[in-house]
Design a protein around this nucleic acid. Sequence first.
DNA 1: GTCTATAGTAAGATAGAC
DNA 2: GTCTATCTTACTATAGAC
Lengths: 187, 187
Amino acid sequence: MDTKERLIESTRELLWERGYVGTSPKAIQQRSGTGQGSMYHHFRGKPDLALVAITRSAEELRDRAEAVFSGPGTSIERITAYLRRERDALRGCPVGRLTQDPDVMADPELRCPVEAVFAWLRVRFTGALTEARENGEMDAALDPAATATALVAVLQGGYVLARAAADPQVYALAVDGALSLLAVHAH
Amino acid sequence: MDTKERLIESTRELLWERGYVGTSPKAIQQRSGTGQGSMYHHFRGKPDLALVAITRSAEELRDRAEAVFSGPGTSIERITAYLRRERDALRGCPVGRLTQDPDVMADPELRCPVEAVFAWLRVRFTGALTEARENGEMDAALDPAATATALVAVLQGGYVLARAAADPQVYALAVDGALSLLAVHAH
DNA sequence: GTCTATAGTAAGATAGAC
DNA sequence: GTCTATCTTACTATAGAC
């Protein structure tokens, strides 16, 4: 991995662990094993580097979700697979955590990839649920868009509760609860 | 409001808006209209003041929830009332946002009130759902603890999605989706 | 491309006057 | 109790040598 790449990956890690406000150029340089010179040669500054890192994390989230949603199984099976996908619950979501960062939300450029990937994810979930309803896998009384948003919220909120409890099983419990609610409405 | 009180309230606001890492003593002093002298007279430092502020925010969350859960209506009605309670979705949860703060989570003292209030809230929800199940208001196939955790997660995740979309209606949509899933239907 | 030197601003806190 | 002065370290970045 070359220097530029190490800078990006180190930034991704630090943004995940400490957020944008809590990540200093110095910390990025130390983790990546580079000096100031390298960082400011490859990037204009912290916001520029962060934009590349955030964009990549958002793409990764999207790609991993797309792999599940375009995979095998019925609509409900694919949704279940996505919800149950192995995750490090205590680390939380590398993109979702950025919504709590005031400097990220205040900067239209940094905010854009965050906004876009969650909009995409909700639409993807909505599509799968619409399919499920058409195939008779889901109660026709449920609104796909509202249900999709609730399910994605369970994931993001599950991270919050798991971190609050310092227990990854709390995340699993939230997912179990959501899937059981969905199962009650299966046909 | 005296000086000490202004310091606490200003800190609560800033922790809500910017988190612990993003809140400096200087910012607290400016918002509260006090000087360094006052802050360091009333508190040992930033962590000490933050502990008082976090504890108060957690108590407030608890009191407001307790008011709804011990209020009138059936179990499901009270749960619905709590989920639909008026909230400023884009501001997020003043306590939940702290779970994303590395310095809060790393300090056992600061972490404690956050952990405690969410543990309490999940138990309170679980109790209400257990009641609901006994009264036939909820499908007997649902586990109260898992369902409770999922519902609290929808709130916390709803904030995340609303902030990502810069749209409070996304929060409302998540809540709608969750309540529809909870609603008992004629099967 | 990477290194060191440098610099202005802010963070977080202490000391002592009033 | 509050104010101002002071201190050390960190943040974020620029300049110029190599």
